[in-house]
Amino acid sequence: MTSHTASGPETAEENTYRELAQRYPQMKYQVARACAVAGYDKLYQELDVLPETHIAEEARECGSTAIYDQIMAAPVGKQSVGYATTPEFDDYGEETFGLWDDPGFEQRSIDITEDMSVDRNAVEATPLHPIDGVGSPLLYQRLPLDLPTIDEDVLIPISAYYGDIDRYERLRRPKMLPYELNCCVIGIYHNTMFAIWWSKQSMETKGICVIRAAINARFIMNNVLSRATTGDDKSDNPYLI
């Protein structure tokens, strides 16, 4: 082992990290962080990882300016601000949130600029790897502990379509994708356990009546007739059974 600085953390040789990343590709982000500490900017470029805030912080604190500058200069797709949903409040003055509320911009999970990349004009972001090659097995195999850098917009609705509770709960985002709702309805209709799971979720959000109607349909098909609404409010009655 060699030391990066007299008082800093001990780091391995660059070739050791390179071999580690080749043998265990799922550890390339940990290797990238080690590169930021040790200043191995050439190996960092070889890893081809997405820009990560914590790696940038490590590079800045350890004086790895080449890696820090590369992360901060990474292209970030800009987005313009559009129409935002008017907030609504309950009887206690608390703001209510729905699965389809729109703040006027896309909530991004990777936000290294910490401003959601909001700009006057929209610029297309660099797309993530599609579901092919390394991503295809994720459609039929167990999800790894650390997901590869792929576009999850395919995995989420497929998990909902088949009513896979574990996969869907792990992959889902605070706001639904445009086509995710229909897949959830299909999953609820065909999977009783998925319907029960959804029935345990918060039903106070706006626009959730479609989900409730699907849940009621699945329960009625299972002879739970108490879910059939007979009063004036029949908005949750299923359209199709």
Rank of each mutant, 00 (worst) to 15 (best):
I188F: 09
I196D: 13
T149R: 03
D164N: 15
I220A: 01
L147F: 05
D164S: 14
V118G: 06
T113Y: 09
T85V: 00
D232Y: 09
A73P: 06
M203C: 02
D69A: 10
Y179T: 07
F219M: 08
T229H: 15
L138H: 11
T96R: 11
L181R: 05
A217W: 00
G231E: 09
V134K: 14
D102T: 03
Q107H: 13
S80Y: 04
T85E: 00
I208A: 04
I55K: 05
L138V: 08
Y29T: 10
P51H: 01
L43M: 12
E169A: 07
S3M: 05
G163E: 05
S199F: 00
G63Y: 03
W100K: 00
V81D: 06
L99Y: 00
P87A: 01
D232N: 14
A66N: 01
Y44S: 09
N182Y: 10
L20M: 08
P75A: 04
N222L: 03
N222G: 03
D233Q: 09
I165V: 02
L47S: 07
Y40S: 12
M72W: 15
V37D: 13
D151M: 02
I67H: 00
D232P: 09
V185G: 03
E169S: 08
G135P: 01
D236S: 03
P178E: 04
G104I: 06
G63C: 03
N222E: 05
Q22H: 10
T149P: 02
I131S: 00
M116C: 09
A32W: 05
K175M: 06
P137Q: 02
P148L: 02
R18A: 14
T126G: 03
T230F: 15
A122S: 14
E19R: 14
D91C: 12
G104N: 07
C184N: 08
P137R: 01
S3R: 12
E169G: 01
N182F: 12
Y40P: 12
K78S: 03
E114I: 07
I112W: 10
R218Y: 00
E19S: 06
V134L: 11
V76H: 05
E152I: 13
A59W: 02
A66L: 00
Q70S: 14
G133W: 02
D90P: 05
A21W: 05
V49Q: 01
M116V: 03
L155V: 05
A32S: 02
L147W: 08
G98I: 13
E14K: 13
R227K: 10
I186V: 15
R173G: 08
A217K: 01
P75F: 06
M27Q: 15
V123W: 05
S64Q: 02
N121S: 13
F97R: 06
W197T: 04
T229K: 14
R142T: 15
D69C: 08
Y24Q: 10
I131R: 01
G82P: 06
D115C: 08
D132S: 14
Y68T: 06
A12R: 15
R120T: 12
H4G: 09
R108G: 03
R60L: 11
L181Y: 04
I186W: 13
L177G: 03
V123E: 12
R218I: 02
G39L: 13
E61Y: 04
I220W: 02
N182I: 08
E114V: 09
A160E: 08
Y140P: 08
E57I: 14
I215C: 00
S80D: 08
D115K: 08
N182A: 14
D91N: 15
